[in-house]
């Protein structure tokens, strides 16, 4: 396991190194670079931050300071499925916190955490601008409007079924060979 994590990390750093070349060594590129890494790898590892610092010729703590200021950046790998529950004003009035709570209860994790199997992570977001559909949850890139606690169960069940089907498909494929 540790070994695969290491190679994973190595591949990640190689990828970042090749992407960094396209960015001029200007301080103004710091946030766009961090966004690029986050976009490609979904989180910023400590060594990635160091690499960026080196590229821009600033100290590591500068980069870390900027990255930790903004909500968008994560410092650990998120789950395969990202659940984001909107807690904007309209969603709050219509029970957004109850939706968040239901996801948390169903998956046994708190907001800003990832399940042990790295399948799901939950985050709260402040308004995605779909207030007329409140309460809203975004799973991966799909916005689900008019959420209800009963829908939470259905959505997660959907993913679980899909996963099992995939697994079966794989087994099936393997047994064929």
């Amino acid at each position: 396991m540790d070994h695969t994590r290491e190679t994973e990390e190595e591949a990640l750093l190689n990828d970042i190194a090749s992407m960094l070349a396209a960015f001029e060594k200007e301080r103004a590129n710091l946030i766009p670079i961090l966004q690029m890494i986050q976009e490609r790898h979904h989180y910023l590892s400590a060594s990635a931050l160091q690499m960026v610092a080196k590229h821009l010729g600033v100290s590591g703590c500068e980069v870390y300071g900027v990255a930790t200021f903004y909500n968008q950046f994560r410092f650990y790998p998120p789950g395969k499925h990202r659940i984001r529950v909107c807690l904007g004003t309209a969603c709050h009035l219509r029970g957004g916190d109850i939706i968040l709570e239901n996801f948390e209860r169903k998956l046994g994790i708190k907001e800003a955490e990832t399940t042990a199997d790295r399948e799901f992570s939950i985050d709260r977001v402040a308004c995605v601008g779909c207030c007329a559909l409140a309460p809203v949850a975004i799973i991966d890139d799909t916005v689900h409007g008019h959420m209800a606690p009963s829908k939470v169960e259905g959505l997660i069940l959907g993913f679980e079924i899909e996963k099992q089907r995939e697994k079966r498909g794989k087994q099936h494929g393997e047994s064929k060979q």
Binding site: R27, N29, P32, Q35, V66, F69, Y70, Q72, A126
Partner: peptide
């Protein structure tokens, strides 16, 4: 186009400018 990174305070013009300059949006 410059994309924000999720900080409400960056709507404030001086913080927004800090952010474009690659700094903490204070």
């Amino acid at each position: 186009v410059f994309q924000g990174s999720g900080a409400f305070v960056c709507g404030e013009e001086t913080a927004l400018i800090q952010s474009i300059q690659g700094k903490r949006g204070m």
